[in-house]
Amino acid sequence: MPNLNRDTNTAIFMMCTGVACLSINDAIAKILMEHYSPFQILFIRTVLAFPFALFLALYSGGTSALRSYKPAVHVVRSLLWIAATIMFFTSVKYLDLAKATALIFVAPLFIAIISSVFLKEPVSRAKWLAILAGFVGMLIIVRPGLIAFNAVTALPIATAVVYALLMLGARQIDPRESVWTQMLYLTGISGILSGLLVPFVWTAIRLEDLWLFAGITAFGITGMALMTQAFRLGSAVVIAPLDYTGLLWATLLGWLFWTEMPDTTTLIGAIVIVASGTYIIKNARNTA
Rank of each mutant, 00 (worst) to 15 (best):
residue 55 F to T: 03
residue 92 V to L: 03
residue 20 A to N: 04
residue 20 A to I: 06
residue 53 A to F: 08
residue 16 C to Q: 04
residue 17 T to N: 01
residue 64 S to M: 00
residue 20 A to Q: 05
residue 50 F to D: 00
residue 11 A to L: 05
residue 76 V to F: 13
residue 53 A to Q: 04
residue 90 T to W: 07
residue 50 F to A: 07
residue 25 N to A: 09
residue 61 G to Q: 10
residue 22 L to G: 02
residue 20 A to W: 00
residue 88 F to C: 06
residue 41 I to Q: 11
residue 50 F to I: 03
residue 90 T to I: 08
residue 18 G to Y: 09
residue 68 S to F: 04
residue 74 H to Q: 15
residue 86 I to D: 09
residue 52 F to A: 11
residue 69 Y to L: 09
residue 92 V to G: 03
residue 66 L to V: 05
residue 60 S to K: 10
residue 18 G to K: 06
residue 72 A to R: 09
residue 92 V to T: 05
residue 38 P to D: 10
residue 84 A to P: 08
residue 89 F to N: 01
residue 41 I to H: 09
residue 61 G to D: 05
residue 53 A to H: 01
residue 94 Y to M: 08
residue 71 P to C: 11
residue 89 F to Y: 01
residue 8 T to S: 12
residue 57 A to R: 05
residue 61 G to C: 05
residue 7 D to R: 14
residue 25 N to W: 12
residue 44 I to K: 03
residue 96 D to E: 15
residue 23 S to Y: 07
residue 71 P to A: 14
residue 15 M to R: 02
residue 31 I to H: 10
residue 91 S to P: 11
residue 9 N to M: 15
residue 15 M to W: 01
residue 14 M to L: 15
residue 86 I to F: 04
residue 33 M to K: 04
residue 24 I to P: 07
residue 32 L to C: 02
residue 96 D to W: 08
residue 22 L to E: 02
residue 81 W to H: 14
residue 90 T to G: 04
residue 87 M to N: 06
residue 14 M to H: 04
residue 35 H to L: 08
residue 26 D to C: 02
residue 43 F to W: 15
residue 88 F to K: 10
residue 22 L to I: 14
residue 24 I to Y: 09
residue 22 L to F: 11
residue 40 Q to W: 03
residue 73 V to P: 13
residue 12 I to Y: 12
residue 22 L to C: 05
residue 63 T to L: 14
residue 41 I to A: 12
residue 67 R to L: 12
residue 70 K to N: 02
residue 49 A to L: 08
residue 39 F to P: 02
residue 25 N to S: 13
residue 76 V to W: 10
residue 82 I to L: 13
residue 26 D to H: 07
residue 77 R to V: 08
residue 66 L to G: 05
residue 60 S to T: 15
residue 71 P to G: 14
residue 66 L to D: 06
residue 28 I to A: 06
residue 66 L to Q: 06
residue 19 V to I: 13
residue 58 L to M: 09
residue 60 S to C: 07
residue 85 T to I: 09
residue 34 E to M: 10
residue 50 F to Y: 08
residue 11 A to G: 03
residue 61 G to E: 05
residue 60 S to W: 00
residue 33 M to Q: 07
residue 69 Y to A: 06
residue 81 W to T: 14
residue 91 S to G: 11
residue 77 R to W: 08
